[in-house]
């Protein structure tokens, strides 16, 4: 019997088929292992049932010239239809004003509704170009006008000085900041 005849016998063909199946099964196992981790639980929110949610989300807004001038990142964004609010976990936003200055804001939680971003829980407004930052527990930002404010105690820092107050307002485009209510400033003096 020649080698070709031996290979053609039913037994060998069955063995070859079995080996093929095993190999296929192995590949399938490999493939399923590389599936992305299953999405988190469908969020229940006191604002009601969300219609969609995004994970590792980045929202980018473009200005009239098509330049990306506002960016919001969050590991989890949830949208609730009845109030049209986006709720974000640990949001971080970056804004460029008309003069190209960079501003960043962040918080533990955030909501975005009608171009108004509200950050709560260790919220911070950072003005790296101007060299100052502001910490508070609740920060509001109108992303269209660049008006930021807080109605709860805030701490302004422009090292080496810092100032605490009960409320604050900032107009990012005009580079103006206003602190009000039991304002306490701490300023090192110039030395000779």
């Amino acid at each position: 019997m020649t080698t070709a005849e031996r290979l053609a016998t039913p037994l060998v063909r069955r063995l070859a088929l079995l080996l093929l199946l095993l190999a296929l099964g192995g590949v399938l196992v490999l493939l399923t292992d590389r599936q992305p981790t299953p999405p988190g639980p469908v969020p229940q929110d006191e604002a009601g049932e969300p219609d969609y949610y995004l994970e590792q989300a980045e929202l980018v807004r473009y200005d009239a010239e098509g330049l990306a001038h506002q960016r919001l990142n969050s590991p989890r964004l949830v949208h609730t239809p009845h109030d049209d609010v986006l709720r974000a976990e640990t949001p971080r936003a970056e804004l460029l004003d008309n003069a190209g200055r960079r501003w960043t804001v962040r918080g533990e939680r955030g909501t975005l509704a009608d171009q108004r971003l509200t950050l709560s829980g260790d919220a911070r407004l950072n003005a790296p170009d101007a060299g100052w930052r502001l910490d508070t527990q609740e920060l509001h930002l109108n992303t269209r006008t660049g008006h930021a404010w807080s109605d709860v105690p805030a701490r302004f820092e422009a090292p080496p000085q810092h100032v605490e107050a009960e409320r604050f307002e900032a107009w990012l485009e005009d580079e103006r900041l206003h602190l009000e209510g039991r304002v306490h400033g701490h300023h090192p003096p110039a030395r000779q």
Binding site: E175, L177, L179, E180, V183, H184, G185, H186
Partner: peptide, 25 residues
């Protein structure tokens, strides 16, 4: 004395980065 920090108490502080001014009132 000279190196002691300057402490300020006031109702308001207005900062204008463009004009470089800081005014307590």
């Amino acid at each position: 004395q000279q190196s002691e920090p300057i402490e300020v108490e006031a109702d308001r502080l207005e900062l204008d980065d463009r004009a470089g001014t800081a005014v307590y009132s």
